[in-house]
């Protein structure tokens, strides 16, 4: 109940913000351009045999893949204000002196941002569904790509919320979020390829977001990958709660 109130407030906050709409319009333009490019490429070189990849895999999965990875930049921008501005404007004091637990505050904030992420997610869904007028889509692959998109974007958004709880400066919050996302998305994989110790390389490899996201766009939903994303999201939610608890100790 309380979580929902905070979530709706955060969601409405996003709708009131100019930045959200700029992001939405920019994203729709980019996705549309990608679609045009992919469709053109596919028409010039269509699937020749049953084994070659079809429309769903070459166009739909790619669009979800790109959209999710655009969130490396979008998520920090959308989440940078979630706690930073509350600290800066002193409105965090409204939350902290109300009979609301830190867990409820963080879950509410995240839920509100997830709702907004789903709203953004309607864009790639609508754009890819437009292909239905010309061809048949692979429902299984479509849904697994969509699930991959949702899990990856939710993870990025949660990381952004955590970064925002670290500072009252939105610029630092955005950069911090971007930094953590890049490290988990890409850098761990790079380091893993350099590490010679097999155990360590495997451990680092396991932490890579891109490694766990890839199977979804091939139509595979592995419980291993789903659990990885749920664990990562939970970890950053818990870290954010801990961070808010300690915020009262130091400032």
């Amino acid at each position: 109940m309380m979580v929902l109130s905070i979530a709706l407030r955060e969601f409405r906050n996003m709708l009131n913000s100019l930045l959200s709409w700029i992001v939405l319009s920019g994203l729709s333009l980019i996705i549309f351009l990608i679609l045009v490019a992919l469709v053109k490429a596919y028409l010039e070189n269509p699937a020749s045999s049953l084994e070659s990849p079809g429309v769903t895999s070459t166009i739909v999965a790619t669009i979800f893949y790109f959209s999710a990875y655009l969130f490396i930049l979008i998520a920090p921008m959308l989440t940078m204000r979630s706690f930073s501005t509350e600290f800066k404007n002193g409105t965090s004091q409204l939350l902290f002196s109300a009979p609301v637990s830190m867990t409820e505050i963080v879950l509410g904030k995240c839920l509100g941002l997830y709702l907004f992420t789903l709203l953004i997610g309607i864009l790639p869904v609508l754009i890819t569904l437009s292909l239905v007028f010309g061809t048949d889509l692979d429902n299984g692959l479509y849904l697994s790509s969509l699930l991959g998109f949702i899990l990856v974007t939710f993870t990025f958004m949660t990381i952004g919320v955590f970064a925002s709880a670290l500072t009252d400066h939105i610029g630092i919050a955005a950069l911090g979020g971007l930094g953590i996302i890049l490290v988990l998305f890409w850098l761990v994989e790079l380091v893993a390829s350099l590490v010679k110790v097999e155990f360590l390389a495997n451990a680092l490899q396991y932490l890579s977001i891109s490694g766990h996201a890839a199977p979804f766009y091939n139509g595979q939903v592995n419980s291993n990958d789903v659990v990885f994303f749920i664990l990562t999201i939970t970890t950053f939610i818990v870290l954010t709660i801990r961070r808010l608890d300690s915020y009262r100790l130091q400032h």
């Binding site: 906050n13 404007n89 002193g90 409105t91 409204l94 002196s97 109300a98 009979p99």
Partner: peptide, 17 residues
């Protein structure tokens, strides 16, 4: 939670949206 329920607080800078 019980303690804060009995409390209304106006900080130095009003916490307004």
């Amino acid at each position: 939670l019980q303690a804060k329920a009995a409390l209304g607080y106006l900080p130095e800078q009003p916490p307004l949206y």
